[in-house]
Amino acid sequence: MSLLQVEDVVVQFGGVTAVNHATFEVVAGSVTGLIGPNGAGKTTCFNVITGLQRPTSGHVRFDGRDITRTAVHRRARRGIGRTFQRLEAFGSLTVADNVRVALDIHEGFRGIFRPGDHDVDELLERVGIAEYAAERADSIPTGTARLLELARALACQPRLLLLDEPSSGLDEAETEAFGALLVELAGEGCTVLMVEHDMDLVMSVCDEIHVLDFGSVIAAGTPAEIRVDPKVQRAYLGYSDEGQGAHVAESLDETKVLAR
């Protein structure tokens, strides 16, 4: 069953079309990847889904309901959480307070009776940044801040989690742990939609991948299908003469060696 449906969404800024009739679905309980070259409109899609950007035309459905015109905070309350590509951590609060504030917002008045800081510690522990708890959020490394945004989003117990380039700034081991966490989350019923440039990560954790180019979905399928799709090759490496795509596909299969 699809949890999220993006239907024929168009976003125009002035004369430039950032998203051009994009249509895709995210299946409940899956980890879905949204990939594509720079400027393909991935972040704009996220903004449309979370309500930060109103589409020029088209619809967004969440859990069967049309939320195209729903306010940002209502979508969040229905269960859409996200992280940001350009960090939006609360810089003047500590790492622990960042998560605490998310719990405060999520729980509303009920939260007044929240017993202790158990939840906060647990969330920080889960994403693996408990050691930074007392640091100010604007003084931690990028990768850590991304994990903090993840912890903050998880505090609101989202049903759909949108992650915008979550692994940039993480090292190899952290990326691996992060991938495992995503799979675990999906298993618990938190569907994940992720924009990501780390192909190893995308290929290893995603159930399905949508490829966006010039604002349109040019391919969709399992990692194995995407890997050999010539359209995807072309989108990533540029327009090229016939025949070269196959060569690249081969080299793609071979390359697993490079660390960041």
Partner: peptide
């Protein structure tokens, strides 16, 4: 080597 560097998983 570029295909390796870009699509091969270098973050």
């Amino acid at each position: 080597i570029m295909a390796d560097v870009i699509l091969g998983g270098v973050a």
